[in-house]
Design a protein around this nucleic acid. Structure first.
Lengths: 374, 374
DNA sequence: CTGAAAGCGCTAACAA
DNA sequence: TTGTTAGCGCTTTCAG
């Protein structure tokens, strides 16, 4: 016998016996490591490693022996050891705004499906639009040495993004504004959907259109509000500051924002929302005020979460395909992670389009309010 | 100088120079590892390790030097190396049914908050009630060597649970049925909530009550259906098989199930659902059929997700506190993981209670249908 | 209480 | 192509 797996792994300089394995219970089955497999297949551990990692230069007959041993012993490479030595964790970070907003679970599902299929785990972090939590997410992802990170929330600090870039970690970032050339950008054509929505409302006769935004302390939420302003002007409608209310992308925020609008003396006839959850909150506020949708108010959401089809009445909304988003993000991440690929950042465009359901209709007092477009 | 961090780490037997660090770019800041800190603080790496791990026996003055070096060099212990040597990953597994059911994100958020605060990461897996995916989840969690796993979905195969127990990994399992004494059980008093709901309906005058269940191929979903049956009988109502329809805990499933009921010639006057998403699907089916809630049908959900308050009309439902659930699960997991704690499995009880909102009312044709309770 | 040194299980450089 | 071996960065004996 050329090799003997029972011999000490290194010629011990000291004469002490090797430290006993810290088995919690000695009756447990012995841990199968790469050495057991090597011994069983009568090859070196290097050959086992190469075989398991699908290195092409392994002799087929040896490879066969190795695979046989692997399955007989039910060998599973130790992820931790692999990660330590290779520096790659086979984990991907996914940063979202708020996991309780149904848009994100839908996105997470897509992500997870692809990631797991490729042998990656997902590390999920929610920012809650909170700078401290963003920092926290970044730290966690960095600490766990994710192989790539998708930042699917607006308003993630640039400095934090740079930290990933500095470590050579591929980043996929959803955003509207152009940013560093070091990240892969998923640029959302937010304006297109808003424009389509406003057109739709205008055609129905709406001239008094309100907007409930996301948290305005986020640069990008403010940006989206101004996109709305511009679209309004393009359509020939003068934006009314009083009808632009800040929400926070939650149900409660939508309800509260709508109640602020209802406290006004002059009401808009239609409301656009920065996301669907906000719109559902608005629907609720209207229900409580005994106002009807779309008879009293027309309503347009944003995202097109699955639930939008199920609200009462079903919500007219702007669809931003989270499938497309997730697929694009993970595709470019994986491409960067897999060896031998270009390291140039990519830019993908995510489109938006209006889905008309039943929350939009003619405005109240149609005749009285209708002004000719300027 | 007693120590020199630049000397080779082991007396090289071969005369070759040490392998160069595989720095991608040589201009990058040098990686700070435990050795840099040791050198900087003029102590051994063992002392750094002890200090960082809060071992009590370190001399305060040395500890101070170490902490100073740690912060000056901004040292972060390498998670992978720690995991490899200690066998503990500081990751917790969380298995849910379906991440797109809002109940679970709410649960995940609670979980994440506690876990992250304790320095743990969460590995999330969805089963979609699919045995193959359950197997997959178990494999992933096992492979990544989670320190503990919370199984927050019904119908997770016992054999899979045993695998964790075999590896000595603490398990927290939500279930109704008693199971192995090796797992921590979160026993949900599902019956209490259902009973309360049926009482509520009975008091309103309902005698014809339908039930839309979860996927019946799951042992526990069938169990819950029979809980419903029993509660019905206790209240003196005879269960009607035709009004027991299988759903799948999704919006679509709820809608489809309700449409099946609507296709019947004899309708129930009230519907209970196995979860809130199902109930929202039912509301939608009713909306489409131009039927009113609660005028034409009373409706009760289960879970009390945040959204339940926002449906139109707001949903009467049975609350199962996901906060309590998450807190109980993670508490017992962490307790088992932290050293020096009892290793005895615990059983926690999760209660349920009816939250009356606006989807329940008097039955249609009240006078005609009302039968005295037997 | 401290430090030297032995590995954790694996990958990859290098030698054969 | 295959095997030998040096670490990856850390924890943990064990000897002082």
């Amino acid at each position: 016998m050329k090799r003997d797996s029972t011999k000490p792994r290194k010629p011990s300089l000291a004469s002490k016996p090797a430290r006993a394995r810290p088995d919690t219970i000695n009756t447990k089955a012995p841990k199968i490591d790469i050495r057991s497999v090597a011994a069983h297949a009568r090859v070196s551990i290097a050959t086992v490693s190469r075989t398991v990692n699908h290195v092409a230069t392994v002799d087929p007959s040896l490879a066969a022996r190795v695979w046989k041993a692997v399955s007989e012993l039910n060998y599973r490479p130790n992820t931790q050891a692999r990660a330590l030595v290779s520096g790659r964790s086979r984990m991907l970070g996914l940063v979202v705004s708020e996991i309780t907003n149904p848009f994100f679970p839908e996105l997470i599902r897509e992500f997870e499906e692809v990631a797991v299929a490729q042998g990656y785990e997902l590390l999920i972090g929610s920012t809650d639009y909170n700078p401290r939590k963003m920092e926290d997410c970044a730290r966690r992802m960095l600490e766990r040495k994710v192989d790539g990170v998708a930042i699917m929330t607006f308003g993630f600090e640039d400095a934090l993004v740079e930290r990933f870039a500095d470590e050579g970690i591929p980043v996929a970032l959803i955003d509207v504004a152009p940013s560093s050339t070091r990240v892969n950008r998923l640029s959302v054509d937010y304006g297109a959907g808003i424009h389509e929505g406003i057109q739709h409302l205008a055609v129905l006769g709406h001239r008094k259109i309100g907007f409930i935004s996301g948290p305005l302390h986020l640069h990008s939420a403010a940006a989206r509000l101004s996109v709305f302003h511009n679209c309004l002007r393009t359509t020939g409608i003068v934006p009314q500051k009083l009808w632009m209310v800040e929400g926070d992308h939650t149900l409660d925020g939508g309800r509260d924002a709508m109640n602020k609008i209802l406290a006004l003396t002059d009401w808009p006839t239609a409301i656009m929302c920065s996301n669907d959850m906000t719109a559902i909150g608005v629907q609720h506020a209207l229900f409580e005020a005994n106002l009807k949708v779309p008879a009293d108010f027309s309503l347009i959401g944003f995202d097109d979460i699955h639930l939008a089809e199920y609200t009462i009445p079903p919500l007219t909304t702007v669809r931003m395909s989270c499938r497309d988003l997730a697929k694009a993000a993970i595709k470019c991440l994986l491409a960067r992670v897999q060896p031998g690929n270009s390291t140039l950042p990519t830019v993908a465009q995510v489109t938006t389009k209006l889905i008309v359901r039943q929350t939009t209709g003619l405005p109240r007092n149609t005749m009285q309010d209708l002004q000719p477009l300027s």
